[in-house]
């Protein structure tokens, strides 16, 4: 499947990536060639095969319901780009 510049723009938007418009064609070409590689999968019949999400046949372990984490706000916010009164700041959210 060949991707064009519009497809790249759409995917870049979904992934919230700013792509310089001078690069979209290059990305389109790269993604197209990667998809061509990936499309080799379509030659195999897998109708009867269960998808495998995980390499081992393990199951989820459950954790006791205990509060183990103390307040570490100061430490955890040390690298935050913008904080005020303990809140992370972002440009105004309009709903």
């Amino acid at each position: 499947m060949a991707l064009n510049q519009d497809d790249v723009a759409k995917v870049a938007h979904l992934a919230r990536l700013a792509i310089d418009s001078s690069n979209t064609q290059a990305y389109a070409d790269d993604l197209t060639s990667i998809l061509a590689l990936v499309d080799q999968m379509q030659t195999v019949d897998t109708q009867q095969v269960d998808p495998m999400s995980h390499p081992l046949d393990a199951t989820q372990r459950l954790r006791p319901d205990e509060v183990t984490e103390a307040d570490q706000r100061n430490l955890l916010q040390q690298g935050a780009p913008a904080v005020e009164q303990g809140l992370f700041l972002v440009p105004k959210v309009i709903e």
């Binding site: 005020e84 809140l87 700041l89 440009p91 959210v93």
Partner: peptide, 8 residues
């Protein structure tokens, strides 16, 4: 917050 939204 200076025109920003705070996230808790």
């Amino acid at each position: 917050f200076q025109g920003m939204t705070g996230i808790d």
